[in-house]
Design a protein around this nucleic acid. Structure first.
Lengths: 249, 249
DNA sequence: ATGGTCGGATTGTCCGACAATATAAGACAG
DNA sequence: CTGTCTTATATTGTCGGACAATCCGACCAT
């Protein structure tokens, strides 16, 4: 077993540049919001060609470690937002051929506790944002499926945000995202789906407003369980691989 | 509130190329393992310069959607491995200034259930891999802290792998990774830490071997709770921001 | 302060080049 | 025919330079 030599890694120039900048960001030598030096300046400092720097920057950019403010040219140090991270994770899950059942199992585990935490920690703004997200579906029982899905998914995201734990928020976000593609089919084919969702959201909101963690957990459990039943009713195989819609960003 | 216009997005060429390839991969038009066309060929097809293609490829590469086999020139379609995804997530969490307490809270939620699932679903190979990971620490109560950390973390990873749910595995991996940097400090300063860890792992293994989900959940709960106590004993502030070690890849 | 003009700086994209080396093709011995 | 060696070709990594578009800052006039 004791291998004497490890396969030696010769890192290309753009990888080294990428790692160097990444390390500086993670070590907080560069703070989110700070403008990055210009490409020519970086090329000068690393003593490489501008093209090489650019390749490194594209790698950092795609991971959300650097971003540019909308309508701006300059790259700035950033921290990857939940949405960006979730994107990467959900892509990985799709390619790993995750089944709906696995996604559901993970949601069953996370979401109720997440709701319980949110009941204790949500602030007023988050609560009203959640109420706003629930309203369209509650007011209009014949909302087009697309919009119903949007609001359902958004409700989950807002709730995760309200739970006061970024780690859990980021863990949960990809799951709801994977729900989306099949959800509209389900909502279309199961007549009572909209009403069940609206009902669960209403009870959840009441629990959140009261700060009743147990009640919130309870209803989120019912809510997530409903999805599974809905899929069964809609005839969607539970062991079908989850798909993905076109990249949302 | 009602903004009339949305900020219009003009996507640059390399972004379009990147998205085009990404879509093809996610839609399974390109399968993992398939070799990608050469850069010149891609440049021809997209009718852009090779430099532009390269920038797109670097973005895909950094997200693990394409990789090159070691010692190979050609890029191949790949699926992001758990390790790669966890890397991105943990970086995000670090930059979001997650506290140890939040990481611990998330682990408290995930790990016991994950252990329970693993008890039901682990196969023989996974079990023996777990045993092998636990052995060094069990045999040698004075193992250097670094190695003790390695094996502790590895045990978590293997357990996640054995739970039979990729979604949960990928959700849990970043958490244990965030544990690592501070863990060696804790193990060094708390004399009984090694023994507690080894004991918990032993009981967990027994439960896993028997397929006893409840027992596994129970002991994983104790195990994770121990970390918190260990941190308190070591005088590590629970609301300290988690850090990151140099990139591991 | 607001709005308009202008020049320099910066990025996005292109072109062409070359060394290093992986890959494929061919030659050759067993 | 199979396996190994040699050679030629293709491909990538990196470089240098170029140019249009456009963002930024300064300067100016109201």
């Amino acid at each position: 077993m004791g291998t004497l030599f490890a396969p030696l890694r010769t890192e290309t120039a753009y990888q080294q540049v990428c790692l160097a900048i990444e390390d500086k960001i993670l070590a907080r030598a560069l703070h989110p919001g700070d403008p990055l030096p210009t490409e020519t300046e970086l090329a000068r400092q690393f003593a490489v060609n501008r093209s090489t720097v650019r390749e490194a920057l594209r790698a950092l950019e795609s991971r959300g470690l650097v971003m540019r403010a909308p309508g701006s040219k300059r790259l700035r140090v950033a921290r990857p937002e939940a949405a960006a991270v979730a994107d990467g994770v959900s892509h990985a899950l799709v390619l790993h051929q995750i089944t709906f059942l696995q996604v559901w199992e993970a949601m069953m585990l996370l979401e109720p506790e997440l709701a319980a935490l949110a009941a204790c920690r949500r602030n007023a703004a988050q609560l009203s944002a959640l109420e706003a997200a629930a309203r369209p579906l509650a007011d209009n029982p014949t909302l087009p499926a697309d919009q119903a899905v949007d609001h359902t998914v958004r409700f989950f995201s807002l709730l995760a945000e309200a739970c006061g734990n970024h780690a859990l928020e980021i863990a949960a976000e990809p799951l709801t995202r994977l729900l989306r593609p099949t959800l509209s089919r389900m909502i279309d084919q199961v007549p009572q789906a909209r009403q069940r969702i609206a009902g669960a959201q209403r009870r959840l909101l009441q629990a959140l407003a009261r700060g009743d963690a147990d009640e919130a957990r309870e209803w989120m459990g019912k809510h997530v369980r409903d999805f599974r039943r809905g899929y069964e009713l809609a005839g969607i195989a539970l062991n079908a691989r989850v798909e993905t819609t076109a990249t949302q960003r």
